[in-house]
Nucleic acid binder design. Sequence first.
DNA 1: TTTCGCAATAAGTGCAGACATATTTTCGAG
DNA 2: CTCGAAAATATGTCTGCACTTATTGCGAAA
Lengths: 233, 233
Amino acid sequence: MNTDGATSWQAVRDEVLRRIREREWKPGDRIPHEADLARELGCARATVNRALRAVAEDGLIERRRRAGSRVALHPVRKARLDIPVIRVEVESRGLPYHFSLTSKSDELPPPAIRARMKTAPDTPLMHVVGLHMAGGRPHALEDRWIDADAVPGVRDADFSTISPNEWLVLNVPFEGGDIAFSATTATREDAAALDCAPGAALFLTERTTWHGTRILTTVRLLFAPGYRLHTEI
Amino acid sequence: MNTDGATSWQAVRDEVLRRIREREWKPGDRIPHEADLARELGCARATVNRALRAVAEDGLIERRRRAGSRVALHPVRKARLDIPVIRVEVESRGLPYHFSLTSKSDELPPPAIRARMKTAPDTPLMHVVGLHMAGGRPHALEDRWIDADAVPGVRDADFSTISPNEWLVLNVPFEGGDIAFSATTATREDAAALDCAPGAALFLTERTTWHGTRILTTVRLLFAPGYRLHTEI
DNA sequence: TTTCGCAATAAGTGCAGACATATTTTCGAG
DNA sequence: CTCGAAAATATGTCTGCACTTATTGCGAAA
């Protein structure tokens, strides 16, 4: 990185990781503060800061102002998960993609959905169901509820040409969301839609996204058998 | 953050996010380079750099030296997934944890495992099977293969008192790994171990970790029905 | 003895300037 | 016209310094 005597933040990070690995600093230990490390390693404090921030992001140390940095007691591996638009995911595997809209209507949501969307008892929500196809075969079944009042323009979206999944990603900014992954067995309807055996084990993704205090949408994505979500550490 | 006229990197980030959201900068567009933005927003280039780096980490822009930064064509949401030691995960739910070792032996791995571990045809590997219990009920079935030559000390580890999962996390540094999540149906053996119905849908995690060129271990974690992996964006 | 406020401390961040590095573009030689 | 070297340029990073902010711990007051 640098030809002169400067120490790169990566070098500092690696040295810190080495000390943690080799138990020079044990889980729970306070580690020297930034200024000391900077002096010891011969670099600016900002460089040490950058390095420690990186290590903290990986979950190996915990940092708090005034309290200092300490080696994490229970190292929690942090994996990064990429969640692409389904069309892109399918096409990146070289398969032609198609979305087919099954239904779209305003309905009173069942209690479970109403609770998740935190809407008033009598508020109807937009309910969209459709099937993502990959190479002519069913890939994922999307069952989505949208608070149309919170998502400007969604009433005019044509979900027969673009999936709600993609339309929302492209058109709706959101602050946060939560995602849960689980396994479930295919009901007879699921099986019919996804062209698999009833009772087959299916990978299920449930996502809810919000912006400010409003919950924008909640979706249930049921993937055809064989789907794997993959990531690297 | 700052009381004086200084612009915080968060403010720069928010302004950048705003411009992307409001289509001031459209997907695929080059955005102004750091120096220009710094001048425009009245801050140091380092501050803009920090902000843009953060936005890039979220996947909304792509940056390349000399080529500049551009708004991502297909915004890929990046979720962070915490992968705790199973014991910690169980205990954080307030349930007592217990690991029970089912078997541990050196065996010639089946071809699928051998391929994954990239070992020579006649190399035996350590094979450990055990059950993670939560509150007296089966929680997850761990089926692990370890290259004992690549993991110093593992031959002396007592997996009846500490799970291989936890022992490895605490004792073995590794560079990287890959993780796959999927759904599968319980075989009769799985069902017996996890105390569920055969054919039930189970959440499956497969992980392989390496260090340098050596593959250290590969594990198959099969969770009892009802398990959900949860994360936030 | 308890509690509250203040001083001390360590991380968090901002700035200006310099240099490093990866790419793209340009332009001259053949 | 093609190829390769050199120039240009945007991001990447380091430094030294100053100031901000969250937190802790201690000492004084109740």
